[in-house]
Nucleic acid binder design. Structure first.
Lengths: 209, 209
DNA sequence: TTGAGGGTTAATGTATACATGTATACACTT
DNA sequence: AAGTGTATACATGTATACATTAACCCTCAA
């Protein structure tokens, strides 16, 4: 049980909605649970804090992040900025073989839609596209932002209600890419992300106020 | 000496060029130097790793980051994306009082130009503008990216050679903002950052190969 | 000479014990 | 009765000691 493994485990629970936003993360509890001392737990919490999933306050412990609607909106705006740029760069380097691969991943990810692994499948689709841009840091930043979103999406669990819409938008993006309509593909991605943001914000405001 | 204080101290040395890119950071050495045990040192290193200034490899220690020219280019591209967007949002919310404040900071920062505090002054100028956008996370991301750049800029120390150019570009940005020419201000910022990237890359390639 | 193997050394990683800081509850003052 | 102060309990922070890993060097054989 290395700190990385512990961080990975906690990250999974965070993103699956098991640990809801704002949950206290006690060092002693986690140490008992993972069967280690508090030292590697502290390391794991620092790792997660570095990823922006956990807030650490000196002498007062760690808790999972808790975002205001305004912050959620900002994060989605950042994703739009970074992901649309990534898509544009990817489109410039895209080959027919890439397009086939993308559509294969899309169809496979559709099978996960609505289920517990939906977030993974969705990300697999987006990632296979973004990877073509050859931008490691940008991809890492996008993934970090996406994780914080997933934490909240899972906590509210209302995405399946619009499953056909999300899948249709994925389809639209691929169609535009096939036709070489980069601008429209980028626009479709922007609409896709903006719609997800609006959807999440609606449910956040409705449930907590 | 809390981990935060230690991290802050090391961050300063990194950005001042005292600790050059790729330097090994021994826990025992740092512990002796700061007069604490290795535990708070480990915490400090994790904090810096979260900021992207230090790379930690399990069982093999920590070292200051070392970037390839390709990565430097990517980071500047990300800065262009995030900072231009920030400037655009800031321009939309800008009042005459804000413009005066910005020019005041600009003039003050000119005094630091070429000296050891140049990076601070430069950032003060950019930050006073970006803050108006009201985007905390975006600003934090920009600052993190900027820090990694400063680390390399300091290490090569060739920025003063083009001092008039950088100051002139700051001036141009403010002039465009004054006239309400947002698009041109954004373009000027893009040119400013791209020029800095090109300058740094030229010297990186020339000195190390 | 070169390459593989093992042993030594020095670093990091972890556990335990102790120190410090924070929160809660209760008594006390106003 | 409300607020403040204090004591106690509990969580986090740190130091020391030990375990473990990795790097380095030396030996030995091809």
């Amino acid at each position: 049980m290395t700190p990385e493994m512990i961080a990975s485990e906690l990250r999974g629970e965070l993103m699956a909605g098991v640990l809801r936003p704002g949950t206290d993360l006690s060092q002693v509890e986690l140490a008992e649970r993972f069967g280690v001392s508090r030292i590697p737990i502290r390391d794991a919490l620092r790792i997660l804090a570095g990823e922006g999933l956990v807030d650490i306050v000196a002498n007062r412990g760690a808790k999972t992040i808790s975002l205001t609607p305004k912050e959620v909106r900002e994060i989605y705006d950042l994703r739009i900025l970074l992901e649309c740029d990534c898509l544009q760069r990817a489109a410039a380097a895209m080959t027919p073989a890439n397009l086939e691969e993308i559509d294969r991943v899309r169809l496979k990810s559709n099978l996960d839609a609505g289920g517990p692994d939906w977030a993974d499948g969705d990300w697999a689709f987006h990632r296979v596209i973004y990877t073509l841009a050859g931008r490691r840091r940008q991809l890492a930043m996008i993934e970090a932002l996406r994780r914080t979103c997933v934490l909240f999406v899972s906590a509210y669990g209302t995405m399946p209600s619009k499953k056909p819409r999300w899948l249709g938008e994925h389809d639209a993006i691929v169609k535009h890419l096939r036709r070489g309509e980069t601008e429209q593909a980028v626009l479709a991605l922007q609409v896709h992300l903006d719609g997800a943001a609006t959807h999440l914000l609606t449910h956040m405001k409705a449930s907590t106020g």
